[in-house]
Amino acid sequence: MENIDSFLVNELANSNLRAYENIFNAHYLNLCRFANSIVHDEDSAQSLVQQVFVNFWENRKSLGHIEHILPYLTTSVRNICLNFIKREKRNVDLTFVPMDAQVENTTENQINIAEFEEKYIIAISLLPSKCKLAFEYSRFENLTNKEIAQKMNITLKGVEALISRSLKNLRIALEEYLPGSKNNKISNSFLFLLIKMVRQKVYSLL
């Protein structure tokens, strides 16, 4: 991955349009997903991500220090989105937090959550390609495992194996943001609530 990225950065410095298009095609969609998770408006998300790509092209000569392209882009997207929210005086709509939660909607939490999502998007892109494909089909395209099996021409079990492998990889990559981790970055009260919620769901299974 490192090799590919530094190769692309190098080509970009030579104004190679195909390298640029390659990067765009690889990351645009997931960057839009990430941006949308912050601004909660798909049109704004798209235009913000496009702005990031415009800046990316304009700065192409001075990207020599970048080893990984996606983290650079996600950080750019995160910043442009947070500025957009500030400018638009929009609140980050943390819809996943229940209204009765005793969680303070602190800036720190918002930033940590955005950071989590940023790392998440990067982690997804780093999944092995088949895992990534199966995971994205399942989570983003809302396909059933059966449909994914047909699309990827593998067995149902194969799909479940790919998705579970994805989850394992993601768990390792995102450990510090997950409830199972002891020193995770998301505030304790929030974590506590989350754990409680999940436990409830889990126990309901039992």
Binding site: C32, R33, R139, L167, P179, G180, V198, V202
Partner: peptide, 15 residues
């Protein structure tokens, strides 16, 4: 719990 969190968080990326 971690898997569940990952699963739920990923839904935030749905468009």
């Amino acid at each position: 719990l971690d898997f569940q969190e990952l699963w739920n968080t990923s839904s935030r990326f749905q468009l």
